[in-house]
């Protein structure tokens, strides 16, 4: 697997905090990233950096800190963003959605296809 830049790792740590939906310690984050090459200290450094940037809140719990991602006026931003990006048809070329919206028929087609690739390599 390719090595990641520190900014990439920062995004992954933040994504892991969001995915959990509850406060995580550095150890929890390390575990949830599920990457044997990752060191505890690296995760701790990234969390400290995220905290300094105001992207996460830190709370002391016992001997460790727990971290929660911060949601700041995102509702407003989301609304404004949607309004700006959905205007006009030309946004199609600018934005590439990870996946378009699928209907149930298409979903079943997806499931069918997903059955094909075998899970050859363990994560």
């Amino acid at each position: 697997m390719a090595k990641r830049a520190s900014g990439d790792l920062e995004a992954e740590v933040l994504a892991a905090l969001w995915a959990a939906g509850h406060p995580l310690t550095a150890g929890d984050v390390l575990q949830s990233l599920d990457d044997p090459e990752l060191a505890y200290n690296t995760v701790q450094t990234i969390l400290t950096r995220l905290h300094a940037k105001g992207a996460v809140e830190r709370e002391r719990s016992g001997r460790a800190h727990t971290y929660t991602p911060v949601l700041d006026d995102a509702g407003l931003v989301a609304h404004r963003m949607r309004a700006a990006l959905d205007r006009g048809s030309d946004h199609a070329a600018v934005l590439s959605h990870f996946l378009g919206t699928l209907n149930p028929d298409e979903r079943s087609a997806l499931s069918r296809l997903l059955g094909q690739p075998g899970r050859k390599a363990a994560r």
Partner: peptide, 14 residues
């Protein structure tokens, strides 16, 4: 304008 940390902006777009 996005409140992003680095590249990632986690936003509930509904």
């Amino acid at each position: 304008a996005l409140p992003a940390t680095g590249q990632l902006a986690v936003i509930d777009t509904g």
